[in-house]
Amino acid sequence: MPVEKTRPVSFACVEERDPQLDRDAVFEANDSLAAAKMAVRSLDLYYKDFHALHDVTLEFPEKQVTALIGPSGCGKSTLLKTLNRMNDLVEGCRVEGDVLLDGADAYRTLDPCVLRRRVGMVFQQPNPFPMSVYDNVAYGPRTHGVKRRAELDEIVEESLRRAAIWDELKDRLKKSALGLSGGQQQRLCIARALAVNPEVLLMDEATSALDPISTAKIEELVGEIKRDYTVIMVTHNMLQALRVSDKTAFFLLGDMVEAGPTEELFTTPKDQRTADYVEGRFG
């Protein structure tokens, strides 16, 4: 049964380090990392013996879209799942280094449930729960203690509006979410994620299972919601990264090769490997 959340993730030096000291060190030594909305510092990740991420240090600026690109198997999705501890579910997964949220150590000082509320996620395959549209969106707020009906109604409407799907769904809130089209399902999942008011939204190739029209709608939506949220997206589509993101990081075989403003990375890459990859794709 691979779903035991209670199993502690082995985390390097968790016992030996004094968490107070550690956090102070983070605040003092890494001003720029601490200032970013979210950041990783010297992050190494292993799946059993496989070394999947090598010493990654990267910051995700607030209210911007950061795109993670690279060939498949390069570790970009792995990094994304590390940010909200979804990697805890993978047996044999070990994380070393720091994940910072507002400069605080997200792994040692935050309960995973709190971390995941603050750092929401949209998955590659739309995964609405087998319940009504309303219950899907209300699930998160209910989880976090909202009980009053009026308040839930308000959150559901606001979240669906933010995900630009209120007009399509307002008349079928009581219908099963499984009856929606793939694109609608994915926007519903975005609404569901927004309903708990996260600070960061992770998107794991959220458009790869969708048709071009739905993809365009979601890209437009990301442009909208970045005014309020910090978005980190993994994409296999470099044009999408170029269209949507403010900052891009390029990964290759578990290394972060290069990161910088999207325009710069695509037009004047500093690393030859980035240049090869970007050009290879663009022909």
């Binding site: 579910l89 971390l115 995941r116 998955f123 995964n127 729960f129 087998p130 989880t143």
Partner: peptide
Amino acid sequence: SYYEGSLALGA
């Protein structure tokens, strides 16, 4: 995916 979706909302 249902389980992951719920967990990702902080449940």
